[in-house]
């Protein structure tokens, strides 16, 4: 257990708990950012430099900002006395706890997992090789992702358009 891993993992999990439990939605979004930074640090520790930077750029630079914007646009930042969770919230928490328990026990008790590193970080593909793989082996998924992003862009723009008010009220059934 090295200190870097402990710090990164602890920060990630603590910020995640805060992001899911705080009352003020803006605070939740800011804690979410800390979580994303923590996960990026974990990626760095695992030797995945490119993914780590991409994670920061997309999650912190785009997704967190989007969440913040949506929070302000829907005026849900204010602190109200309303209950935060659905009423039988223990049920949801119980389900999540069961899932975590199942995964953790199966991971800890599994004899199939490799016990030590099979790879030296220096042998990891360089950014250049990664780009070449993206453009050769994975070119079809890459194109599909491009299509998906375009579709999402257009979809979000259409959804965000202010609908024109109907000039005549629709006939009552």
């Amino acid at each position: 257990m090295d200190a870097a891993f402990l710090i990164a993992a602890g920060l990630t999990l603590a910020a995640a708990v805060a992001a899911m439990s705080l009352r003020n939605l803006i605070h939740c979004a800011l804690c979410l950012v800390v979580t994303f930074f923590g996960v990026a640090a974990l990626f760095l520790l695992l030797g995945a430099e490119f993914v780590s930077f991409a994670q920061v750029m997309v999650y912190v630079g785009a997704i967190a900002i989007l969440i913040v914007f949506a929070t302000l646009l829907t005026r849900s930042a204010g602190v109200t006395g309303e209950p935060l969770a659905f009423q039988p919230w223990l049920v949801g928490l119980g389900i999540a706890g069961l899932v975590v328990g199942a995964i953790v026990t199966s991971v800890a008790g599994s004899g199939l997992l490799p016990t030590e590193s099979s790879r030296i970080v220096a042998a990891a593909p360089s950014t250049r090789e990664l780009g070449e793989q993206l453009m050769s082996t994975y070119v079809l998924p890459l194109e599909v992702v491009g299509l998906l992003l375009t579709a999402a862009l257009i979809g979000a723009a259409v959804l965000g358009l202010r609908e024109p008010k109907p000039s005549t009220p629709p006939p009552k059934p």
């Binding site: 999990l13 899911m20 996960v39 969770a85 659905f86 999540a96 899932v99 975590v100 995964i103 953790v104």
Partner: peptide, 15 residues
């Protein structure tokens, strides 16, 4: 797994 569980708990319980 813990991160997944926290996310799941949030998604299941928050209004």
């Amino acid at each position: 797994a813990l991160l997944f569980g926290i996310g799941l708990a949030g998604a299941l319980t928050r209004r």
